[in-house]
Design a binder for these strands. Structure first.
Lengths: 114, 114
DNA sequence: GAAATTAATCGTATATTTACGATATAAAAT
DNA sequence: ATTTTATATCGTAAATATACGATTAATTTC
């Protein structure tokens, strides 16, 4: 049981879900906000503003990296992150087109059933 | 360990994360798509188009209900779902304002560090 | 070169999610 | 009234996510 069925869905559905998953934890939303606020890469400063242990923050950063939402570079002993606007934009527009498509489709045949 | 720290974040961060979580599984994206495509409430038809057991689909529908993204009504033995555009819109605009705010803030002080 | 700093990774405990079959419930059809 | 149909709920197994402390690795600073 609990076998993974995720791969049986459409690519676009999987991608949208993965993007959503990347921002489905308040810590990761907060991290993105913090990085965007200073724009340029902050590093251990993120740990200071979050109510989480350093190792936990590192784990969340790794997930954001995996999703391609942030980029990192090493500067001495410090690590430096910034938003990857390319994928950020890509997902934002995919997200919007999903919503808008759904909405216009629905509006053309609205039946107010529920 | 693994105690829940989610409540220690800002309300807006928690809400955005919860919304993202609701659509963080391809099955739920597919369900929303399916409902929106016909606009009006379909029901067991959703089970037919998904590669999941009836009970699993029911569980995903319950989550979308909990998040307020869909509404349901009972019609005989059948169950009928449709998109709740009110919360749908609310979240879409919250999502966009998050992205846009982040982006304009960043652009004003871009340093291209990574 | 030793000590301190910074951040990633490892190991691990716990919590949550995902998935299913079985069962329950309730209306419709026979 | 019984059977069928449609869907929700329960119980449960397995997978994943979350969180932390301890450790490692790599630079700086002393």
């Amino acid at each position: 049981m609990a076998q993974n069925k995720k791969e049986e869905f459409k690519k676009s559905e999987i991608e949208l879900a993965e993007f959503a998953k990347a921002i489905s934890h308040p810590a990761r939303v907060a991290i993105l906000k913090a990085i965007a606020a200073k724009d340029m890469c902050i590093c251990g400063e993120i740990v200071d503003v979050l109510p989480l242990a350093q190792s936990t923050v590192s784990q969340h950063l790794k997930e954001l990296m995996k999703a391609g939402l942030i980029q990192g570079s090493i500067d001495g002993t410090k690590s430096c992150y910034c938003i990857n606007w390319k994928t950020f934009d890509k997902f934002a527009s995919e997200f919007n087109s999903f919503f808008n498509k759904a909405k216009t489709k629905a509006e053309s045949s609205r039946k107010d059933c529920c």
